[in-house]
């Protein structure tokens, strides 16, 4: 199997605070990974650090994607290389419709002008699959969307932009059944042998219908155990206390 993402001994800060303390992770094409961990373990930090969010600083270690060190790439370059991140709290951007935004993003990611008709068909089809209100697409990006609508919109963007690696930074709570279903279904539609998914979550419901290859437990900035789907079930029953110091 060919390597997609490789994180080596990563240390990173949020402000002055050290959050990631020597994290290692390998993801190959065709795999679905899940990272679980208690609040404050560094789950969201990991997603943001991979994406080079300027609020976080890498202290040492390497992030290699598709054979290239992406430590110092700007966020947009990382996206263009084929990494996607679904946000916990997607930003509301007034004054630009979701359609226009997707067009601009798709142009940038693909590096060539998209065919509007094809794009619209693609969006329409995926929205139907995700059970999204078709009117949302003409509204301003995330403005006034409910939590569930925002989440579906993230998944829609993932499907349209079709990245090599999708990192889903999931909210720990607050999603209705419909949105949870949409996330599972979206992942199912997206997944193939050439791409990979990294799900960062607390929420077992999202995982229920998915074929998971690896589950990692992240505590205090490090992955301290890796297992298969069984591990997620065990955490669901017993929590993290066993793994905490």
């Amino acid at each position: 199997m060919s390597k997609l993402l490789e994180i080596k001994d990563l240390y990173a800060n949020a402000g002055d605070k050290e959050i990631l303390k020597g994290l290692n992770l390998n993801i190959n094409k065709g795999e679905v990974h899940v990272i679980m961990g208690p609040n404050g373990a560094g789950k969201s930090t990991l997603a943001n650090v991979i994406f080079n969010n300027s609020e976080y600083t890498k202290k040492s270690g390497e992030i290699i994607f598709d054979g290239e060190n992406i430590n110092d790439l700007s966020t947009d370059k990382i996206a263009k290389k084929g990494v996607f991140m679904s946000f916990q709290n997607p930003e509301e951007i007034p004054g630009i419709t979701t359609t226009n935004f997707l067009k601009v993003a798709k142009n940038n990611i693909d590096g060539k002008p998209v065919k509007i008709f094809e794009l619209k068909e693609n969006i329409k089809k995926n929205m139907e699959e995700l059970n999204m209100n078709p009117k949302l697409i003409e509204r301003n990006l995330n403005v006034g969307f409910s939590g569930g609508e925002k989440k579906k919109n993230e998944i829609l963007q993932m499907l349209v932009l079709n990245p090599k690696l999708a990192i889903l930074d999931e909210t720990d709570s607050g999603l209705d059944v419909d949105a949870v279903k949409a996330v599972s279904k979206g992942i199912d539609m997206y997944k193939n042998d050439e791409n990979a998914v990294l799900i960062i979550t607390h929420n077992m419901k999202i995982l229920q219908n998915l074929k998971i290859d690896f589950v990692h437990i992240l505590i205090d900035g490090k992955i301290i155990k890796t297992g298969n789907a069984e591990l997620a079930k065990e955490i669901e029953e017993n929590g993290f206390s066993k793994y905490k110091k």
Binding site: S54, F87, A105, I109, L161
Partner: peptide, 14 residues
């Protein structure tokens, strides 16, 4: 900055 980061994560330059 948060809005900029969000848009950049979708492949837009700064």
């Amino acid at each position: 900055d948060k809005e900029i980061f969000y848009l950049m994560s979708r492949g837009l330059s700064e």
